[in-house]
């Protein structure tokens, strides 16, 4: 009943950690996950696009500040944020997930806009919800919250609770 089609065997070998474009490739519950460092993010994605992963299905992020002990392959240091990109190769019917570690003190990632224009809105959403900046993004503004909102709601240190209604100069 798996909804996934795994990458074909060529890149997989017997050892635990396989490398794809020099980045550790991990099999997680039958799904391929590639841990890319932030410096090589754009470069690796460009290579992957040429390899057939032409469609960027999803781009999101996770704030791991309460779960720093998560399992990561050797050589990858846990940082507070992780940007998660889901790629799809339509012709070979396979998926690949990219996880990029983003440090707390410099939450910024290069934008994928030039490669996958469809990520424009998703990156804005991640910026809105997590405060991760995407350098070179054509329109770095909030997308879901009002423009003058303070804080980034999906961060773990942002309270969930209800807050009083905010009016922006509406006549009462």
């Amino acid at each position: 009943m798996s909804a996934e089609v795994t990458t074909d065997g060529t890149e997989m070998s017997e050892d635990e950690v396989t490398l794809l474009h020099g980045c550790p490739l991990v099999d997680s519950r039958g799904q391929q996950v590639l841990f890319v460092s932030r410096d090589r993010y754009l470069e690796v994605l460009r290579l992957l696009t040429d390899e057939g992963f032409a469609m960027c299905v999803d781009l999101t992020a996770v704030d791991y500040s309460r779960f720093m002990t998560r399992e990561l392959p050797d050589g990858v240091t846990a940082e507070r944020f992780e940007v998660v990109v889901n790629l799809l190769d339509i012709s070979a019917r396979r998926r690949l997930r990219i996880r990029v570690q983003v440090p707390e003190n410099d939450p910024s990632v290069p934008s994928l806009f030039d490669l996958h224009p469809g990520t424009e809105a998703m990156e804005r959403e991640v910026f809105d919800m997590f405060g991760i900046a995407f350098s070179d993004h054509p329109d770095p503004s909030r997308i879901l919250m009002p423009e003058d909102w303070i804080g980034h709601p999906l961060r773990k240190d942002y309270e969930t609770g209800s807050i009083p209604v905010q009016f922006k100069g509406a006549p009462s």
């Binding site: 799904q31 399992e71 998926r95």
Partner: peptide
């Protein structure tokens, strides 16, 4: 269990 998955339908 710990981990992360993506499922699409």
């Amino acid at each position: 269990p710990e981990g992360e998955v993506y499922v699409g339908i």
